[in-house]
Design a protein around this nucleic acid. Sequence first.
DNA 1: CCGCATTGTTATGTCACCCTAAGAACCGTC
DNA 2: GACGGTTCTTAGGGTGACATAACAATGCGG
Lengths: 224, 224
Amino acid sequence: MAARPSPAVQDYLKAIYRLEGDGDSVTTTQVAQSLGVTAPSVSNMLKKLEQLGYVEGGGRRGVRLTSEGRTSALDVVRLHRLVETFLADTLGMRWDEVHREAEILEHHVSEALAARIAESLGHPDRDPHGDPIPTEQGLVPDSPTSVSALWTLPEGATGRVSRCDDRDPELLRFLAEVGLVPDVAVEVLARAPFGGPLTVRVGGERRVDVPPDAARGVFVLGGR
Amino acid sequence: MAARPSPAVQDYLKAIYRLEGDGDSVTTTQVAQSLGVTAPSVSNMLKKLEQLGYVEGGGRRGVRLTSEGRTSALDVVRLHRLVETFLADTLGMRWDEVHREAEILEHHVSEALAARIAESLGHPDRDPHGDPIPTEQGLVPDSPTSVSALWTLPEGATGRVSRCDDRDPELLRFLAEVGLVPDVAVEVLARAPFGGPLTVRVGGERRVDVPPDAARGVFVLGGR
DNA sequence: CCGCATTGTTATGTCACCCTAAGAACCGTC
DNA sequence: GACGGTTCTTAGGGTGACATAACAATGCGG
């Protein structure tokens, strides 16, 4: 029953967890950029995290989470996504507002409260942006392997929106407007050259032009 | 549009606000005891609060809140009680659990979220313990003047429970068990001598023995 | 009016977390 | 294998909020 890490530590663990997704070893600068702090701050904190047993490999080539670190990171991620889902579903907050709020509340919601929230929502396994919600035991619902950014799909590709990047409220407002939300069917009709927009059929109905930076934040579970 | 004070500052303002209730000038030691910190810490913080314009009269005889201080204190109290109400009504948390949780969340709930919570609850004016919830404009719903601690009532007195002290979960569990909750009718049937229990009729039905320390935490709006 | 308890302050230290400035280690290029 | 650029760490500060220790001021009983 380890004590709950401080908000700062939780933020570092969460960032490292997210960065481990692509490639496995995480560098000081990656973390610094991701959290908006300076490299020396990260250097100090990583040393501390290593002493606390949350990360290892502190020497050269970046750090990795220990299993304990991963457990703690998943705890935070779970709370974040549960809170997001709750704010959206129960309180009717817009999906572009919930991330900010959850970013703070994730550090201050007790386990007891989280359990109640989860129960009142019927133990959801996806948050409003389509991200999987880890279980209390730290299991992450299967992330299908054939998920690619909409941006990378060739003309003619079809599939369903799996998740959307939740960090940019403006992006989310745009996506909501054009109907690019989780579970909707999409088909890439055309790719404009020179970094132009993608033309996409959304929900079998609307034709929508999606600019590159938007298309990079939408992930599609491929039909083919 | 003053920036939101830090959690620590909010806690001090809340404590001073509560202590101003009885008598008007609040001393260093009162605050220290109320917050469980040492006198020097309070001394420092009061100096800071005075510089920030939240309190005045810092010299001799204790401090008082400025109107700005009172406004900020009421903001915190409002959030605390809204959160309590929400946790109890919407999430079914027991009334003895909500205080602890709200004590933390009050510092981290945004104005936007508070507004949504208030709306989803229909802008309640009492929390689960019967305490009044200040409005967004900082107005405290009328606290009736003829409210006295159950402990102070003479034999034969009648009335309705107005509010219960929310700080001791054990007390609240006891009160819930014997039915002493806000709005229930009570009548003092007997006062045992030498600090013995009060015998009270609750809700026109049950006879209940209420020990002194419990009777001091229940406040009754007098019928006569 | 003096002594002494209560109350409050100043001085100083600690801890967590962040910063800037400056030096050390690594890395591909020539 | 020296060189310039990137990356990382060490050194040294700063802030907020707490602590302890020691001193000052108040206020009351005798």
